[in-house]
């Protein structure tokens, strides 16, 4: 009986909800998963809001000039339920973001993970992952 219960639990885990993922809009409407980008930079502003929170980030490119990126993450609600708080990012924080670029070629991206100043790597609640 224990084995049956164990098997059922395993199956329930396999078929259980993918939680929580968000999708206010479809990832594919705006972003290109064939254009991954890693951004290391300094936080200028963190807007904790719905339906997407935004991280504005100054990134120094190889030529030495600074480029400002707008990085979309999940909604306040999705981030809050994953442990993010309004002051999780502050101006001046150095962070690394793994993201996907917007199709329109602008310096806009959708974050899959964000490495926080304390070294923790957290989900960006990307619309690519389904979102909530």
């Amino acid at each position: 009986m224990k084995r049956i219960v164990g098997l059922l639990l395993q199956i329930l885990c396999l078929f259980g909800p993918v939680l929580p993922a968000s999708a206010h809009h479809s990832f594919t409407a705006e972003f290109d998963d064939k254009k991954p980008v890693k951004l290391e930079g300094t936080v200028v502003r963190f807007e904790f809001m719905n339906p997407h929170s935004w991280i504005y980030l100054d990134v120094k490119n190889p030529e030495g000039t600074v480029v400002r990126w707008a990085v979309e993450t999940g909604s306040t609600n999705a981030l809050f339920r994953r442990g993010w708080r309004k002051d999780s990012l502050r101006a001046g924080d150095r962070i690394t973001v793994d993201a996907f670029r917007a199709k329109d070629g602008s310096n806009t991206a959708n974050a899959s993970t964000v490495k926080l100043p304390d070294g923790r790597q957290v989900s960006g609640a990307s619309s690519r992952d389904g979102g909530q």
Partner: peptide
């Protein structure tokens, strides 16, 4: 539908506030 755990509560969802996608669509 599945009942969510007791610590889940509904949160505000002001959709227009952070909607910055239109410019890129």
């Amino acid at each position: 539908l599945r009942r969510r755990p007791a610590d889940v509560e509904l949160l505000e969802y002001g959709c227009i506030e952070g909607e910055r996608d239109a410019a890129h669509l």
